[in-house]
Design a protein around this nucleic acid. Sequence first.
DNA 1: TATGAATGAGTCTTCATTCAT
DNA 2: CATGAATGAAGACTCATTCAT
Lengths: 235, 235, 235, 235
Amino acid sequence: MPRQPAKPRPSPRRSPGRPGRPEAGQPGQRERILDAATDLFSRQGVAGTPVKAIATQAGVTPALVHYYFSDRDLLLDAVVEEKLQPLVAGVFANVAGDAEPMAMLVGMAGRLIRTAAATPWFPGLWIREVVSDDGALRERVLGRFALQRAVALSAPLAAAVARGKLNRGLEPALVMPSLIGLTLLPLATTHIWRRLPGGEAVDIDTMVRHVSALLTHGLAPAPDAGESRLSPESS
Amino acid sequence: MPRQPAKPRPSPRRSPGRPGRPEAGQPGQRERILDAATDLFSRQGVAGTPVKAIATQAGVTPALVHYYFSDRDLLLDAVVEEKLQPLVAGVFANVAGDAEPMAMLVGMAGRLIRTAAATPWFPGLWIREVVSDDGALRERVLGRFALQRAVALSAPLAAAVARGKLNRGLEPALVMPSLIGLTLLPLATTHIWRRLPGGEAVDIDTMVRHVSALLTHGLAPAPDAGESRLSPESS
Amino acid sequence: MPRQPAKPRPSPRRSPGRPGRPEAGQPGQRERILDAATDLFSRQGVAGTPVKAIATQAGVTPALVHYYFSDRDLLLDAVVEEKLQPLVAGVFANVAGDAEPMAMLVGMAGRLIRTAAATPWFPGLWIREVVSDDGALRERVLGRFALQRAVALSAPLAAAVARGKLNRGLEPALVMPSLIGLTLLPLATTHIWRRLPGGEAVDIDTMVRHVSALLTHGLAPAPDAGESRLSPESS
Amino acid sequence: MPRQPAKPRPSPRRSPGRPGRPEAGQPGQRERILDAATDLFSRQGVAGTPVKAIATQAGVTPALVHYYFSDRDLLLDAVVEEKLQPLVAGVFANVAGDAEPMAMLVGMAGRLIRTAAATPWFPGLWIREVVSDDGALRERVLGRFALQRAVALSAPLAAAVARGKLNRGLEPALVMPSLIGLTLLPLATTHIWRRLPGGEAVDIDTMVRHVSALLTHGLAPAPDAGESRLSPESS
DNA sequence: TATGAATGAGTCTTCATTCAT
DNA sequence: CATGAATGAAGACTCATTCAT
């Protein structure tokens, strides 16, 4: 303690933490900020969330947000890399182009719904800031991982449609957007349709069933065209 | 600022426009502002669009925006009432609960797509500011017309599912969200999937066909008794 | 970005002006700000002068400074263009390379001193922000007018030294810096040497006489061949 | 940028109280910081140099700067005492009032130039922070050693002028400022006039010769009675 | 001896809004 | 009708400084 003598001692400044401070530090200050940012961004939008709001929700000073992330922009980077990217990786995990396309798509839809349900900030953030035109995360997400994932899926899907393994009326390039629209958008609007009659009873399993039903029949090749379901398969 | 005493002092009723202005006629100042606001809101989000940007795009001063709309908040009201509401009314036009549910839904999807394609600001605005959690227009839209429209549709849909006129795996409360997700979200992300292989060739008709195909089979009652059920994710 | 300030409409906000407001407006708000900026920059340095200080001295709000100058940087531009440039132009007025070099230089020194004395901010600003290494106005001033003025003078001076119309011991490239050093630096340090014995009595005319005396003999060609050479440091 | 946080200077300002003096490593942490500070102050100005920049250049943490110097203000003190003061002492070394004034002044000019050339931070720091109006080091330097040095010189110079041992047109109180202006200002502006034609070839010896030539003739008593007088403003 | 963490007090800048003209 | 001028309130970011370790 080198500062003994003529210490001005302006303010007592004892316990720096706001109520509910981390004590020892399990959550990790940086983590708390990142969580708060992700949450607020998903609820109020990036443009609608001042750094101060993030700091407040994390129980820190705005200056500390800059201390850890330097920049509002780098904070966005961190959200994409440390929050979104892992999540998307989870959804795409063990998705192989060679699998049965129907199963793959329905499976991905289910995983998307369950993932999103377990990570409440996901659908809102994606809808608002990735999908939207000038979404603050859009280019980051597309450039870093989303686009390549979509591209990787595009050839198999086109082939599946061409070979009649998927409904021939489908447009391959629109399959993924349809999937997103069918899963994340309803999830992002839970608060809305819950207000509808019958809506309050809908749970995640119901949702998975609904989307599965829609996709199973909607994506499948038309039964009357003479194509039997699950023809011999030759990969 | 340095206006000396000898000020011209124009008469109380001066001719409005400066030279080279659109005069009082065709476009309408107020209309231009409203258009600019709608467009910018849809592209940059409400929170991301300052009044000044709207004024600039409309070719007027920020003060004039206040002159016509008093308030940023009332400008939002105007956008909802004069832009969104008529559009939604168009989509729901001659939708009757008594019609064949399949035809009604597929028809509405088609109308949604065509309407949105003809009104580029629509999908973006809806996705960002109506659907999103704290969307700036959300409560306005829900409270004024969207909710009651959805409610009106909810009973017939539930009945149709119950009576087997729609796929039994569907959840009535989720039919409308699915419809929105299947139409507006892909439309809002045109810029994205256009970059995918095969995406650049997709036009509106293709899109209508794609969604129709998906819905026609996806919503229709299962042709056979064996209902496809997705296993609830064996986690 | 985040707008929507929860309009409480707190204060009636009547008379905007602070004490001593311009009333009719002789000085001109913009002019007042520019004057304040120039003055403060010269006294405290550019880096040491917050916009708020300028605003306060001008009797306005910081926001108004931005209203007129957009940017701290553009304010610097304005200071250079509207304050420094005219002043320098005045000093260099009717300076012709063809004139007798002695008379020209001594005349310029005199004009520099009188100009600077009449414009108290000039020497300080020049010394601190033009001459100094990372001076905030340096590149602006050099790039826009100072360098070309110096270059224009450089050939005639070299010729004059070569032809013996100026002291042969002089280095042409150093003549202008010497002139500046002999005039602006003492002027910038008035407050210092005024404290010295005999200093309080020195006025502008005395200063002009002093510099003229020094230059008249210092610049003039040596009357006799015996050129004084300083021994290279007798350490 | 604008620093200088209203120095209340509450503490008695003791010797920084380094708990155990550095003396460990060769370069010396403290020395490195002091060097970095001096260098940066001279190039960017005191107000334009954050502690962090000093720390970075010295390869340490900002906290360590405070550890050694307690305070930004005390760091300035240290720069003055440990850097500027010794340098100035060197320039004034063996300057005696009784010497031949001409030789003393020309000698001092030469020593000033050579000193400054060997210590690149000197001219800039002096010009910017000692000479300038609110220079951050000004009062420190004047109060501690510069003023008394100048005062000590002032009587002999006045006597020399009075006795005709120096040019009678000179103003004694202005001799030292002229000397500073003639030496340090050109040195501080090396980067500028080096860009002029002929400037790139100028070296220290040339500079010494130039100033010596100017001073030798400029300071010397007029060889003839006809004293050149500059007309008071040739308008 | 040294530092990472943390913060209060600024600094620059933007914005919605008002008002006299 | 329309606008230039003006401002209070915020927003992002920086900085000197402190402190526990």
